[in-house]
Design a protein around this nucleic acid. Structure first.
Lengths: 127, 127, 127, 127
DNA sequence: GTGGTCTAGACCACT
DNA sequence: GTGGTCTAGACCACT
């Protein structure tokens, strides 16, 4: 489950990022429809209005485009950008970690060690 | 500024982490008092009630201890733990980045590249 | 294209106005048949059911009259009224603009200027 | 009452335009707070969520800026733009009227007559 | 009290 | 069934 109601970042943003990642990874393809409001809401155990809000944001950002009575479709331009945006999310996480280390007197070598440990754990998790 | 009112994680938690990092980095030392509610509130442009809530949480977690009418003091045990907790925060950031990469079809080599780029930028930023 | 699916006024109403304007302009003449459901649907890139609903409204308002199995015909009385109705639409647009100006502290002279500018642009557009 | 639930343009957009006009006219001044979600909702006989949505749009467009727990404040840049935007709304109304006239075989002189009639009626209405 | 998020559920136009 | 709008009402963090 990628969506966590206890995470302080709002559900609608988590859902948005969830879709963005799915597009970046090629699971949702340009020209195709993503799951309907209601379907996605059921899938994620969330209220349709919350999904709606996420989809609105995605439409505003150009990733998808809605056709009333039909569905929400991944745009070509959006799909092209999605990969870069997700890489930005990854980069931002790393930067955030380094900034915290930096501001807490954790030296560079130690930060690198922590990255390698996370790397190993991630590899182990996936196999 | 480490405190951001637009950040979805509550201010009182941000303030807590802010103090934790300051302790981990040695800026606030065991046995010494941390800034008073009012001082901290002014420093962070925040309402004293919000700082109060943060300090209560920190006391509950054992990082600091209040002496009525005197101030809040960093405990020895708390200071020892702080470093580990902050390293956990750093580790979690890295892990989060790797997980996003993993779930979006960004391969390991590319993730490593992004880490190195963040590393370089961080070094540049500090000098 | 006079029909816009993103326009908040319902498609069936837009289609109704579209026909009304066509009658007012003499493109559809009294006694003659307007395009069939399917033809109109194809022309406007719209579902035939939506055109059906528009035609039903127009019939109720007396602009056209259906002959089962034959088609929808422009009535004489309807054609006479159409011109006045469309002039009402034009008048309402102007009134709406003046009301907005009025309520926003845009003085009359300035409103007139804006009208002249629109006039010039409209002339340029048509040639 | 500027807000009309029967108007096909969504309430939240009507509310947004309502605020925009109020800023353009100087009723809401830069640096000052506009009515709170709840106050505005009561004033307009509308659900607070609807006002919220309107305010979100206005914030996104830069006209106002929200401070959680405090209020929504008119920005300086937004106030400067507001006048131009409202003039755009007026211009668009006039243009729309001319376009309808144009497409319905109403000649220019007649359109001008309709404008003058609306002008007279508007003057009479205000006094 | 103020903004921010979320749920539950209704009704509409369109396919 | 699909998206789009709206109401009613709850809970949260912050002032």
């Amino acid at each position: 489950m990628t969506i966590d109601p206890n995470n302080p970042t709002p559900l609608f943003r988590q859902i948005g990022d969830y879709v963005r990642k799915a597009v970046a990874s090629g699971r949702y393809r340009p020209g195709e429809a993503i799951p309907s409001l209601r379907t996605m809401a059921l899938e994620l155990h969330v209220n349709p209005n919350t999904v709606k809000r996420a989809y609105e944001d995605l439409e505003r950002s150009g990733l998808i485009q809605g056709k009333a009575g039909v569905g929400m479709f991944v745009t070509l331009a959006g799909a092209r950008e999605a990969k870069a945006e997700v890489e930005g999310m990854v980069y931002d996480c790393f930067m955030e970690g380094l900034r915290i280390a930096q501001g807490s007197g954790i030296d560079g070598g130690r930060a690198r060690e922590l990255f390698e440990r996370a790397w190993a754990e991630d590899a182990r998790r996936v196999g």
